[in-house]
Design a protein around this nucleic acid. Structure first.
Lengths: 205, 205
DNA sequence: CGCAATATTAACAATTTTGTTAAACAACCG
DNA sequence: CGGTTGTTTAACAAAATTGTTAATATTGCG
């Protein structure tokens, strides 16, 4: 029976609650309850709510962006890269389905954090983006894909992967899916989205 | 110099603040300031914060879903319908760019409202969805589009239209777009997304 | 004008949420 | 075992947020 150190019990609980509710709607009381302890203990280990939140935000921010950028970085051929991106995004986010909504919510409210934490992680979107745009334009010139702006393609890929998670409650309700049906739908999407994109850009033979 | 009735000055201010911040992060003080009045006056016209929020939510919920369902309802041919949907969504949401994020945030926190307000508006997603799936399957059988589940197509269309708004702050920062560049990008998307979808589903000739 | 009725505000009160303190408890070590 | 350290809690205090009230200002109308 290895008991986790209280610090990480707190952080794990805080992660769940903050991710579900966002900073503003989160009550420290709820974090404490989720961690099975008294509210005062949070303050014993961490100065205040904001301090805990910042730690969580950094963690989740990294989870959200790190994997994505790793794939941008690899120099596979375009189609392979897209396949990896789609598969990676849908797979990893499936295990943290409310991560995108959390990031979007908090970044929308404090856009300056995007720059701050982006630098902290050493992310440089400009470089990745330029590299990707170059790759796309090369394919276009080679006549393998129809003309498309690299950035529009990136936006399309991200949209197709992320939105179904962000809109999970709406999709579940409108399509009357329970948790497992929703999961199956996402599983099918790995193939569906990849093929959708390839057909969308490939020049017909 | 026609002065608007105080009720609607309040609601308009509340709409802006709630939409920007969501319920939990909104301070009644901020609504009052935005409306150019004393906080007490909000309570003179409306019982409390929650009452104001409910009015706003109903309004915005309707804005978000009503237009969408109208297009589902029309019986244009598939490609035309898709074109209308894409154009309509991107155009109308462009005028209310943070509407989708607001709806998603609040529905994620209170999914039961989706059903409640959906019924209030007389929306019946099941019927529209079945009708659309039928239309898609007919096209598939006719060999005009490649095999695809109707629901996956709906999700794809919505994703491509909505996500760029939901992720606006991230996209703006990562792609270094100012407000007008971002707007231009969305303008170009009307055509881009439509063509992307058509190529993705059309059987090559 | 003058007085209702309505609109608005400032000051106050209640509630909710956060943060602190001092005392109880537990673990470790001589 | 006794004392010392670090952990946890209950009770309290402070701050922030919301809601109320009573007094003031404004409007319209006889």
């Amino acid at each position: 029976m290895k008991q986790k150190p209280t610090e990480s019990v707190i952080l794990d609980a805080a992660m769940r609650v903050f991710t579900r509710k966002g900073f503003a709607a989160t009550r420290t009381e709820e974090i404490a309850k989720e961690a099975g302890m008294n509210r005062a203990l949070l303050h014993y280990y961490y100065r205040d709510k904001q301090t805990i939140f910042n730690l969580i935000f950094e963690r989740r921010f990294s989870e959200f962006f790190k994997g994505l950028f790793i794939i941008f970085e690899t120099d596979s051929p375009l189609f392979e890269k897209i396949e990896k991106m789609v598969d990676h995004e849908i797979s990893t986010i499936s295990q943290h389905p409310d991560l995108p909504r959390f990031i979007l919510m908090e970044v929308a409210q404090h856009p300056e954090r995007l720059i701050e934490y982006g630098q902290k992680l050493g992310l440089n979107p400009r470089i990745f983006l330029e590299q990707f745009e170059g790759q796309v334009q090369a394919e276009v010139r080679a006549g393998r894909i129809r003309p498309i702006e690299g950035r529009q393609l990136v936006i399309n890929i991200m949209s197709l992967c992320m939105y179904p998670f962000v809109a999970k409650p709406i999709i579940k309700t409108m399509m009357q899916l329970d948790e497992s049906k929703y999961f199956e739908m996402q599983e099918r999407r790995k193939k569906e989205v990849y093929e959708f994109i390839i057909h969308a850009i490939k020049v017909s033979v």
